[in-house]
Design a protein around this nucleic acid. Structure first.
Lengths: 248, 248
DNA sequence: GGTATAACTGTAGGATCTTACAGGGTCATC
DNA sequence: GATGACCCTGTAAGATCCTACAGTTATACC
């Protein structure tokens, strides 16, 4: 069979039905652009008190265990970059920027011992409060890998977007019961006006219904969202993308 | 001078200091990938009651006026797609999906009369509540343009991310006074716990301070955010990315 | 006709939030 | 030593929200 192209892999992702399919697509992508390993992580807000985390990883288990037990996600510059940016970033660049911070240098050094020498990380933000990232790694030295990383970057950026949508689809069974809270029109309207700072009375006036009814809708929404009060309901509804205040 | 490459344009964006620079980079990108026109739009939540809108456009003014006066943003499938997705989409696809909806067919037809026949739209979501999109258009028929659109897509996707960061930077003077609300550590903590559904009393216990102090911080934060009550403060702080509830 | 869903309403007591009063303390910077 | 930024606290009245009580109406679908 012919070598897979970029489009084949995107198509495979679009049809992926299992985690294994997605894993395979990532591996395929790595092969195509000469990367050695990858890790994808996502955090998805839910109606539970904790977000739902998803990882799809080819990274060495030993490294992941060290990473978790040391709490490296707090200092990992790729994680920090991807949480606050929308553009991809090479590890080389992050390494250069961390010149003064010994902890981070040591972190990169430790990762290198597991073959994670150079690489690039791609952020995704969904607009629904979800965020995710894909890192592609190479065992080649930073300087030597620079060119292939640069060439792969636009494709990696787009791959990451499709990857995230594929993950969402495949995990929908697990995610849906947690995220698929459907608010009625009225429930959304009531929450929205409250999120705009309106009181129950004001919201009632705006919507042309009684105060009692506004309370009723907010209560129903709060039960669906599994929250205890109005502020919590608003926070969660926004985080889950059910309402978007201040947008026309 | 040699033809500009993809990387040159990204570099130009990274250095862009004015709207004109950005406009030029977009035009340059269109030339490189054989598109005829572009429009970029962003909406950025602020501490005012309305978000801040930014447009950078090469579209015909006549079309933009019709678009605005008709309120086409409400039915424009590219806008709807970009608000809810993270992957790019071709207009051809949106056109096919709208088979039944006459209004949308007519919308596409009307756009065609202004040379906006085929194209592709790229969404961006920043994780700070900002969202933006870039549309690239061609006067070529949908079928004929399909190939060049497909080839340009990964580059367009990445270009859009850099474009958005450039716009943020260039508009920072205008945006900053509206978005650069700095909450203190305590203010954030208090809002965060309230957004998690905690009462004043519970928050006070969690932070080891008095109820009165929690009220004090929430009041200060509310004044900075220019809002009237707790729910409003939480909504705006989340929309502006100042706090992120439910994330560890 | 039964069932489910959504929208709607009233009252009342208790919980919670908001505001206005009036302060004290630390720390870094100019 | 003053100034500003931040953090901390108390009381009390009034506004607002939450909950539990107990319903009605309209619509769609089986």
């Amino acid at each position: 069979m012919a070598v897979k192209t970029y489009h084949d892999i995107i198509d495979a992702l679009s049809c992926a039905a299992t985690v294994e399919d997605i894993h395979e697509a990532c591996s395929e992508f790595c092969r195509l652009y000469d990367f050695d390993n990858f890790i994808y992580g996502a955090r998805i807000p839910t109606s539970l008190s904790k977000p739902y985390f998803i990882y799809i990883s080819g990274y060495p288990k030993a490294w992941r265990e060290i990473y978790n037990s040391e709490g490296y996600q707090r200092i990992d510059p790729t994680v920090i970059h991807c949480a606050t940016h929308i553009t991809p970033v090479t590890w080389e660049r992050l390494f250069r920027q961390s010149r003064e911070d010994r902890r981070i240098r040591e972190f990169f050094g430790e990762a290198s011992q597991f073959g994670l020498v150079s690489g690039v990380s791609f952020p995704v933000h969904s607009g629904r409060g979800e965020s995710a990232m894909l890192s592609l790694s190479s065992a080649e030295a930073r300087q030597r890998a620079a060119r292939k990383i640069q060439e792969a970057t636009p494709f990696g950026q787009m791959f990451t977007a499709y990857l995230h949508e594929a993950v969402r689809r495949v995990f929908s069974q697990e995610i849906l019961p947690l995220t698929n809270v459907r608010l009625t029109e009225r429930e959304k309207q009531c929450l929205l006006w409250c999120a705009e700072g309106k009181t129950t009375w004001e919201t009632a006036r705006i919507l042309g219904i009684s105060e009692r009814t506004v309370l009723y809708h907010i209560r129903n929404a709060s039960e669906k969202l599994n929250v205890t009060n109005r502020s919590h309901a608003i926070a969660r509804a926004i985080a889950m993308g059910l309402i978007t205040p201040e947008y026309s």
